[in-house]
């Protein structure tokens, strides 16, 4: 029983990490329908941002989003404006462009750091909490809590603010949105910037949990795509639930089958869902097609 509880706790916490990482990708993939392979590298940049803030100013990684998120927002806007906007309506070219971006960012950081693994520590790094029979590190719980808070905040913004409504309108039908007087281009840039900023947030919060390396982004990108597709494109609560499902799947299959097979199971489930229900578990059926059609 304790073993199962432990596994569930591990899966839930892992799910929190995936949900957090997928938050930004969900905006980018769900709203603009850009398959951004560089999203994992944005998370990695966020981690190195937290590291730089900690080295330069002695800032705690949990405070660094204050600096990192705006920086990532600007980076996202620049990337969208100069690389992805000219490629609108050419999804495959966008894929290759984001792949190019991935290679440039990952190897640029590799060149700058020389590929030495680094750690960022926070004052709460070593604190752990006891819940019932299980012992959990505080940083991991914090990730789950903050992922939930960020999800709720994003959901609220999309639901009730004017900008958020505009983003949803564009996600649903960009042509109709344009006819309603929404500046679609601006919404795209905003969404991409926000997506990058959320990746930066994820990077800051995850920095104390991982040993930083330039290649770390690749660990996040495929699970993040799985989460977004499972949860349903553009559905904020869907991505959160998708993250938890992916985390639990990984933990359970790792425990009951073999740790070496957990990714095989995870991605097999992903492919099956993708094939059977491309709109995702929480998405509107057929919604995945919108945006892939050539829209003016």
């Amino acid at each position: 029983m304790t073993a199962l509880l432990n596994i569930l706790a591990i899966g839930l916490l892992l799910g929190g990490i995936y949900a957090l990482v997928s938050l930004g990708l969900n905006l980018i993939f769900g709203v603009i329908r850009i398959v951004n392979f560089a999203q994992g590298e944005f998370v990695m940049l966020g981690m190195y941002g937290a590291l730089s803030a900690s080295l330069a100013m002695g800032m705690d990684p949990y405070l660094s989003p204050v600096v990192v998120m705006p920086a990532m927002f600007i980076l996202g806007c620049i990337v969208y404006r100069f690389i992805l906007r000219p490629l609108q309506g050419e999804p495959m070219m966008q894929i290759f462009a984001t792949f190019g971006l991935l290679m440039v960012i990952e190897n640029g950081i590799l060149g700058l750091t020389g590929g030495i693994g680094q750690n960022v520590s926070s004052f709460i790094s070593s604190v752990s909490v006891r819940i019932g029979p299980i012992q959990i590190g505080l940083p991991r719980i914090l990730v789950l809590v903050l992922a939930s808070v960020a999800t709720a905040a994003l959901w609220w913004c999309l639901r009730y603010t004017l900008r958020g409504k505009a983003i949803r309108a564009v996600a649903q039908d960009r042509k109709a949105a344009r006819l309603m007087g929404i500046d679609v281009e601006q919404i795209f840039m905003l969404s991409f910037g926000l997506g990058a900023a959320f990746a930066g947030l994820a990077g800051c919060l995850l920095a104390p949990l991982y040993t930083l390396s330039p290649q770390i982004g690749m660990n996040f990108i495929m699970p993040a795509f799985a989460v977004v597709v499972l949860g349903g494109l553009g559905s904020v609560p869907g991505a959160f639930v998708g993250g938890i499902i992916v985390g639990l799947t990984e933990a359970l299959s790792g425990f009951y089958l073999d740790p070496a097979l957990k990714h095989a199971v995870l991605f097999m489930v992903f492919i099956i869902v993708l094939v059977l229900r491309p709109a995702g578990l929480f998405g509107v059926s057929g919604a995945e097609e919108v945006g892939l059609r050539e829209q003016s």
């Binding site: 290759f96 462009a97 792949f99 190019g100 971006l101 991935l102 290679m103 440039v104 990952e106 190897n107 640029g108 590799l110 060149g111 020389g114 590929g115 330039p214």
Partner: peptide, 12 residues
């Protein structure tokens, strides 16, 4: 290190 992939990425 990795400069070859940076250049390749830019070309891409």
């Amino acid at each position: 290190p990795g400069s070859n992939l940076v250049v390749l990425g830019i070309i891409l």
